[in-house]
Design a protein around this nucleic acid. Structure first.
Lengths: 179, 179
DNA sequence: TCGAACTTTCAGTAAGTATTGAAAACAATG
DNA sequence: CATTGTTTTCAATACTTACTGAAAGTTCGA
C-alpha cells in the first residue's frame, strides 16, 4: 500500500479553522436535509488545495471506507466534485469545483431536475385528471392546481435560465434587484 | 364531542384526485427532505374548500392526534397555514394560504431565515478566523471562504428582495428572464 | 367550581437513514 | 495467471427522526 501525498508541514491554526468549517458545514447540511457526511466531504474538498484520495478523506473525517466511497460517488452524481487520476498512480483522487458561481449553477440545475420536474409531473397529472369534472368544487380544485402548476413551471424555467447564464449576466440582474 | 361540519355530498371522482394529490405531494415532500406528513397536511389544506379541524385532518390522513397536532403547529410556524376560530365553536380550524405567490414568498423568507442566515454565520466566522493567517495556503482558504460568503450574502439579499416584492414586479422579472 | 370539549405534551415505539467493516470484484503489473 | 493495490458492494447495526396513544393541561359555560 502506497503512502498518499506526504503530509505538508501545515499551519496548525489553519487546520483548526478548516476543520471548524468542515464540521459546521456538515451541521448545516444536516439542517437542510442533506446527508451530513456528504456535506462534510464537499466542504473538505472545497477548501483543500489539492485533490484527496478516498483514504485521505476517510482519515480526515474519521469515517469508514464504505461511507466515504458512497458519498464521494453521490457528490460526483451531483456534479459537485470530480475524480482525477494522476499518471503513474492507481488511486483515484477527488477535487471539488471551486468556482462558486459554477457550483451554484450545478446545484440549481440538479435540484430542478430532482425536485421541480417531478413536482410538475404530479401537478400536471392532477390538473389533467380534474379537467373534466364539473362541480364547482372541482373547478376550484382545478384552478388551484393550475395556478400551482404554472408557478412551478415558471420557477423551473427561471432556474434553467439562470443556470445556463454567465456570471456576468447574473451580476447584472443582482444589480437591478438592488436598485 | 361535536360532529364536524357535516360531510358534503362530494364528487367521488374529485375525492380520488384530491387524495392522489395529497399522497403525491407528501411523497415529494419526502424527496425534498421535508416531513412527509407535514407536506400532506399542507397539500390537504391547500385544496380544501373550507378550513379543517384537527380531527378532520386525522381522519383524512389516518394519523394520530399527536402527529396531526405537531405538524399543524409546524406549518403555522412556517406561516403556511393559520388557525381560524368560528364563533360559537370551541374547535380550532386550519386553512392554508392559497395564493401561490404569497406562499412562495413565505417559503423564501422562511428558508432564508432558517438556512441562509445560519450558513452566513458559519462563513463569516471562518472568514474572520482566517483573516490574520499569512501562509499562502491560508490566503487561498480565506479567498475561497470569502467568495462563498459573498455569494451566499448576495443570494440571501435576492431572496429578501423577491419575497418583499409584489407579484406584478416578479412577473416583470420573469418577462425579462425569458427574452 | 364542575365537567365537557378541546389542546398539548411526552414516553415508548416504529420506521427510516446512515455507517461500518469485511468480503467480493476489478485492474494493473510483472 | 498470480499478486497486490484499489474500488465496490452489502448485510448487519447504529443512529435519527417520525408517530402513537394516553395522560395531563387548558378553556369555557352553566
Amino acid at each position: 500500500m502506497n503512502e498518499d501525498t506526504p503530509a505538508r508541514k501545515s499551519d496548525p491554526a489553519l487546520d483548526a479553522v478548516r476543520d471548524e468549517f468542515v464540521v459546521q458545514w456538515g451541521a448545516m447540511g444536516s439542517a437542510w436535509g442533506i446527508n451530513r457526511t456528504m456535506a462534510q466531504i464537499h466542504a473538505l474538498l472545497m477548501v483543500s488545495p489539492n485533490p484527496l484520495s478516498t483514504d485521505q478523506v476517510m482519515e480526515e473525517l474519521k469515517i469508514s471506507r464504505g461511507n466515504a466511497h458512497s458519498n464521494l460517488r453521490e457528490l460526483i452524481g451531483w456534479g459537485l466534485i470530480r475524480g482525477v487520476i494522476r499518471k503513474g498512480e492507481r488511486k483515484e483522487y477527488f477535487e471539488a469545483e471551486k468556482d462558486v458561481w459554477k457550483m451554484f449553477c450545478t446545484i440549481a440545475r440538479e435540484r430542478k431536475r430532482r425536485e421541480i420536474d417531478p413536482a410538475l409531473d404530479v401537478l400536471e397529472n392532477c390538473k389533467e385528471a380534474s379537467k373534466g369534472l364539473r362541480s364547482s368544487e372541482a373547478k376550484a380544485f382545478h384552478t388551484q392546481i393550475s395556478e400551482l402548476s404554472d408557478f412551478v413551471k415558471l420557477a423551473g424555467g427561471a432556474m434553467d435560465q439562470i443556470a445556463r447564464s454567465e456570471q456576468s449576466k447574473a451580476a447584472r440582474w443582482a444589480q437591478k434587484l438592488f436598485t
